[in-house]
């Protein structure tokens, strides 16, 4: 049964490892925004840059028309 002494210490080391991972994750801000990453997964497939540049602004014609 002396093996218990050994396994107990191993388990405590394991616990310490998990704790430090958790502390690191907190420190690096992974719990700050729980919403965006979930959405970001969806948009990863849409990265290809086929879009054009936006040029100038053409306000006035389309703004504040109250008809």
């Amino acid at each position: 049964m002396n093996i218990i002494y050994f396994t107990l210490i191993i388990s405590l080391i394991l616990a310490a490892v998990f704790l430090s991972v958790f502390l690191w994750a907190t420190k690096s801000g992974q719990y700050e925004d729980l919403e965006t990453p979930g959405h970001r997964i969806l948009i990863d497939d849409y990265k290809q840059g086929k879009n054009k540049k936006l040029e100038g602004s053409d306000e006035g014609s389309d703004c504040s028309s109250d008809s």
């Binding site: 959405h39 970001r40 948009i43 879009n51 054009k52 540049k53 936006l54």
Partner: peptide
Amino acid sequence: LWLIEKTSEIV
């Protein structure tokens, strides 16, 4: 989210 972050490419 996609559209707003896309502004960095189009502007």
